[in-house]
Amino acid sequence: MDIPLPSRAALKAHAKRLRGALADAGTTITHAQALEAVARQWGARDWNTLSARAHDAPQHAYHPGQRVTGRYLGHRFAASVKAARLMPGGRHALTLRFDDAVDVVTSQHFSAWRRQVNCVVDRTGRTERKTSDGQPHVVIHAALAGA
């Protein structure tokens, strides 16, 4: 199975996350060293070789670690994308991990809190599945930069 090569920007973001994770573990490396490590992970001789093979435009609208905001069953949320998979027709299968649990029950007699949800969103960030009043289960309003 061939895994498509991410964009240059995604590869650089990977290097930045790698550098941060290593720093958290007590190992300091330069950004250039992180780029070289990412290149080796993708089977390239060095960063320049990998960079030449990578595309300039991102291939996916969503990626793991990305921060998003929106509404789930009518409730506002802020979340991290835990998993993302590109599907046919430009749709994305996502696993969203909410910063704060969302009560998915409208009853005053009990609650049911969800911390994570799986969904499939279209290019506009909306699910095809809808509630009984016709609202999409998930609407992603914004993908936050810098994550």
Rank of each mutant, 00 (worst) to 15 (best):
L50Q: 06
W42V: 01
W42Q: 07
H60K: 11
H31Q: 13
A39C: 06
N48W: 14
N48K: 15
A39Y: 00
Q41D: 15
L50A: 04
A32W: 05
Y62C: 00
A57F: 09
H60S: 07
G26W: 03
T28Q: 12
H60G: 02
R40A: 15
I29C: 01
P58I: 09
A54V: 02
R45Q: 12
A32S: 14
R53F: 08
E36G: 11
H31D: 10
E36Y: 03
G43Q: 12
P58T: 07
T49C: 03
R40K: 12
D56M: 07
T30H: 08
L50E: 06
N48T: 15
T30V: 01
G43V: 08
W47A: 05
A39V: 00
V38N: 00
D56G: 04
Y62S: 02
H63Y: 11
T49W: 14
H60L: 10
T28E: 15
I29G: 02
A44T: 06
A54T: 00
A37L: 07
W47I: 01
Y62E: 02
Q59G: 15
S51P: 07
V38L: 05
Q33F: 07
T27Q: 13
A52Y: 06
W42K: 01
H55Y: 08
A52W: 09
D56V: 05
A52T: 07
Q33D: 15
R45L: 10
T30Q: 04
A32H: 10
H31L: 14
A34H: 02
Q41T: 02
L35V: 11
A32K: 14
W47D: 04
R53V: 00
Q41S: 10
G26R: 01
W42G: 03
R53L: 12
Q59A: 14
H55K: 13
T28P: 05
R53K: 13
T30W: 08
A32E: 15
A61W: 11
H31S: 12
H31R: 11
Q33A: 13
V38R: 02
T27R: 14
A44C: 02
A61Q: 13
A39N: 02
R45N: 08
R40F: 06
A32P: 08
A52R: 06
H60C: 07
G43E: 12
H60P: 00
A34C: 04
A54C: 05
R53G: 07
Q33P: 07
E36M: 10
W47N: 04
R40Y: 05
T30L: 03
N48G: 10
D56L: 03
W47T: 04
W47R: 03
G43Y: 09
A44L: 02
R45E: 14
A57P: 02
A39I: 00
S51K: 15
H63E: 14
H55F: 08
A39D: 00
T49L: 04
A44M: 07
T30M: 03
A54H: 04
L35K: 06
R40M: 12
Y62T: 01
D56T: 04
